[in-house]
Structures are given as structure tokens and as C-alpha cells.
């Protein structure tokens, strides 16, 4: 027999999920439908003249080689931010998990960067890497590398990746640490008694048991890299030099809020939305299967 929760009043369950539905509607469905609506329009900034143009905004984007180029930039950027952010978060979590003395202090310090606003994080790294006054640029020069993110696209891309990753490491750290602490110590001790070294213990026991956390973070970090990084780019490179750091979400922000080109910006955000939804679906369909809860 099925075990079923029953409510005394038929409307009560709906009432209980209502707040959640309301939030989804206000913060996702409504803005998303607005984006869809504006993506088929051309409108002047003041909203005085509106024209329906069908798919023209999309056609224009896909015939623009610079827009297609920003796909490449976005892929490199997002993969780098996600992978390096998660790898560093995991590394720090494993290290901090082993610390006995002053553990709280280490943890607090590692969590700090998360409280920094993206734009501030950007400016901070911009200063450190500033070719004229930055201490890191100075150090690199003494090592024989002439760092200049104003001219070199590679340097600029590294700069925004470092700044965006740095901000996200704390978040990853926090979740990995919690995940590590949930792994029963007895399992690890048993493996140690059987003669498995630290590396073996990590890869055969800890890492698989962390997979739910890892999977969750993969989704969250992808979304972060795709959607929330325009502040860093805006504060550091403005998408330059050339278009070396123009990631898709920065172009949405720049064309819409700076350039006041609403139709194109809306079309771009629809494209971005489709990409992220399909990426998340792929992740849930193919990667989640290998996750052991």
C-alpha cells in the first residue's frame, strides 16, 4: 500500500506551495517572458516608438562575426572559471579539513572573498595587475614576462578569469568542506588500515562520496560564469582589448544598459537563456546519472 500524506482541505497543498510559485513567477517567468517579448521588437530607449520585427534581431546577431566570436570567448572563459574555481575550492577544502589548530581562522579567511562585490573584485585585481602600478605585473616583469592587459588579449582574458574565479572559490570551498565533513571518518580509517595512501583514499573514497556536492557546484558555477560575471568584466577590461574579453552576458549588459539597444539586448539574453537551460538539462540528464547520493 502507498503511504500518502493527506491534507484535510483540498486547497491547502496549493496554498503551501504558493509562495514558491509566486517567487518563481515574479523572478523568473515574468522577466523571461518580457525578454522574449522585447526580443522580437525594435524600440527606441524612451519607448515612444515600437516596431514588431519578427526574428530580425536574431538574424542580425547571427550574421555578426563579432557576436559569433564572443561564443568562443565565453566557452573558454566559462570552462576556465568553473574548472579552476572548483579545483581550487576542493583543494582548499581538503587542506582546511586536515587543519586542527586555528581551523576557524583559516575557514573565515577563505570564505571572505565571497562577500566582495564582483565589481570590487574586478577593480582589486585590475590594480594588482595594472601594468604601471600593479605589484603582480611588476613581479611578472622581473620574471621576464611583459604583462599588459591593455594590449594583449590573452593577458586580459587571464585577468578576468582570475578575478571571477577568485570570487567563486570561497563558495565552492564552503560546500566542499561541508561535503567532506559529512563523509564518515570510519570509512577513511578503514581504508588507511588496509594500507591505502592519502591519494588513493581521496580518489577512491572521498571524491566519489563528494559527487552530489560536485555536481551541484558544477551547475551553480556554470550559471555563475555565464550570468553573473559581467560586473567583473565591466570594472576591468570593458570587454577589450579588441573583443578578447567580450563574453555573452557582458554584451547583453553593455548593449542593453549602456548602449540602450533594447531589442538586440533582449534577443541576446534569450539566446543566453536557451544555452544555460540546455546546459543544465544536459548536466542533469547525463552527468547526474553518475552521481551517487
Amino acid at each position: 500500500m502507498h503511504k500518502r500524506v493527506t491534507f484535510r482541505h483540498p486547497l491547502l497543498p496549493y496554498l503551501l506551495v504558493l509562495p514558491q510559485l509566486a517567487i518563481t513567477f515574479v523572478f523568473f517567468l515574468w522577466p523571461a517572458s518580457q525578454a522574449l517579448y522585447y526580443s522580437v521588437l525594435r524600440q527606441d530607449p524612451f519607448g515612444l516608438k515600437t516596431k514588431f520585427v519578427g526574428l530580425q534581431n536574431f538574424e542580425r546577431l547571427f550574421s555578426d562575426p563579432t557576436y559569433l566570436n564572443s561564443f568562443d570567448v565565453t566557452i573558454v572563459f566559462s570552462l576556465s572559471v568553473t574548472l579552476s574555481g572548483m579545483a581550487l575550492g576542493l583543494l582548499f577544502a581538503v587542506m582546511a579539513d586536515r587543519v586542527v589548530k586555528g581551523a576557524a581562522t583559516y575557514k573565515t579567511l577563505l570564505i571572505w572573498p565571497y562577500a566582495v562585490a564582483p565589481a570590487v573584485a574586478g577593480v582589486l585585481w585590475w590594480f594588482l595587475f595594472n601594468p604601471t602600478i600593479g605589484i603582480l605585473a611588476y613581479a611578472l616583469r622581473s620574471l621576464g614576462y611583459d604583462w599588459n592587459h591593455a594590449v594583449s588579449g590573452t593577458d586580459a582574458l587571464i585577468l578576468v578569469i582570475v578575478a571571477s574565479t577568485w570570487k567563486q572559490v570561497s563558495y565552492n570551498f564552503l560546500f566542499f568542506l561541508a561535503g567532506l565533513q559529512a563523509i564518515p571518518k570510519s570509512l577513511i580509517e578503514a581504508a588507511a588500515i588496509d594500507g591505502a595512501g592519502p591519494a588513493r583514499r581521496f580518489w577512491t573514497i572521498v571524491f566519489p562520496l563528494l559527487s552530489p556536492t560536485t555536481f551541484f557546484l558544477l551547475v551553480v558555477n556554470m550559471v555563475y560564469a555565464f550570468f553573473e560575471t559581467f560586473g567583473v568584466v565591466h570594472a576591468t577590461t570593458s570587454g577589450g582589448p579588441g573583443q578578447a574579453t567580450t563574453i555573452l552576458v557582458y554584451k547583453v549588459f553593455n548593449d542593453g544598459f549602456i548602449g540602450l539597444n533594447l531589442g538586440s539586448s533582449a534577443a541576446q539574453s534569450v539566446i543566453l537563456m536557451v544555452i544555460v537551460i540546455s546546459l543544465t538539462m544536459i548536466q542533469f540528464r547525463f552527468i547526474e546519472r553518475r552521481v551517487q547520493y
Binding site: A150, S152, G239, G240, P241, G242, G259
Partner: peptide
């Protein structure tokens, strides 16, 4: 922005 980008392509 476009002028900035193209000038930077020239400087690079």
C-alpha cells in the same frame, strides 16, 4: 566601443 576595439586591434 567599436572604435576602441578596432584601435586596440591595431595597437596589438
Amino acid at each position: 566601443d567599436i572604435i576602441n576595439e578596432e584601435l586596440e586591434n591595431i595597437w596589438a
